[in-house]
Design a protein around this nucleic acid. Structure first.
Lengths: 180, 180
DNA sequence: CTAGGCCTTCGAGTGCGCTCGAAGCCAACT
DNA sequence: AGTTGGCTTCGAGCGCACTCGAAGGCCTAG
């Protein structure tokens, strides 16, 4: 188990820390993940509480507007509306037609966000959600989709570890020529 | 050090294996990485030989045509020409104007591919390469770029581990509803 | 000498995932 | 009453990274 197989978040004093660029919008999800991670960057064993915590903050004032959800999730209001337009999420409305989000709605958004963060295309997320809606006799196909995505995630982890090795090598040999 | 912090490549018999979808084109690079990985999916300690092996296969018939490079790297000939057009790589030509690739050229392509696999935008790769060409007084900026990219990679690893946890949870609870 | 195949350039098209802007509604505050 | 601010819909536009196709060159085998 080498340093390559863990996630050295703040850097084990080997490399100077760099402000993280906001590659993906899930700031809140990341923060939750960070809050449960150990010092060496590894995650605690998977259990219900952890998964629950990774999906939702505990202190939720229940009726949330779109901009509050945007702030919590890091997804812009524009994108949230876009997701709804293409049928990726459904949202309740208040009497004047505004979107209101309860705990469950936020949970669904968080789930979609995790899938998107793992590189799953919107079309596949959509397909999965429609299977869920379609009822219990779609479990086989659902499971298939999940296993496929799991494999894709593992492949990406492998790619990233390779890239990390190459970049770290470059850093330690400090700015060497690209082919060297 | 839990199962989450390693990369369970073939799956530790917990989940059935799924044929990996070709998310990214670097089939050969992936194969090289797989060949040096331990059984539990962790990578051996970083050293020169490893990094060298991750960049190039050892048995290279030296004058390579574009389609051979395409097959080795998994990058299409179209994309290789595209990379050249936008100045991402340079390539020698034979007397009749065809592209020929030697070991160094292939090494540069592999390096670029690793950066791309880590999500670095083409523009940033380009910037880095132009700094390398510009000479040794650009080392500070080069190092900055590398550190930035390192941070981006670490962030992505964290995201993927979170997504993996969520997906695995769904798999073990077998096709449960999306918000549950 | 011609056919096949792989190469060349260049420009245009594609797919994905947002991202933005215009025009308008509604509630609350001054 | 008016003004502000945040919300609504809808369609169009954008940025990235390819991806493709057309038109033609060069070399080799039959």
């Amino acid at each position: 188990m080498t340093a390559l197989s863990t996630v050295p978040e703040a850097g084990p004093a080997e490399f100077p820390a760099v402000a993280e660029p906001p590659l993906h919008p899930a700031t809140r999800l990341r923060a939750i993940l960070d809050s449960v991670a150990a010092e060496d960057g590894s995650l605690p064993p998977l259990n219900d509480e952890l998964v629950r915590a990774m999906r939702l903050p505990d202190d939720l004032p229940e009726p949330l507007g779109i901009s509050e959800v945007a702030e919590i999730t890091g997804i812009t209001a524009h994108t949230l509306r876009y997701y709804e337009r293409i049928g990726l999420v459904e949202t309740d409305r208040d009497t004047s037609g505004r979107r209101v989000y309860d705990r469950d709605a936020l949970g669904r958004i968080a789930f979609v966000t995790w899938l998107r963060l793992s590189g799953m295309p919107i079309a596949s997320v959509s397909r999965y959600l429609s299977l869920v809606k379609a009822g219990p006799d779609t479990q086989d196909e659902r499971l298939g989709l999940l296993l496929e995505q799991r494999a894709a995630i593992v492949a990406q982890l492998r790619d990233l570890q390779g890239a990390l090795a190459v970049v770290d090598y470059k850093i330690t040999t400090y700015g060497g020529a690209c082919g060297a």
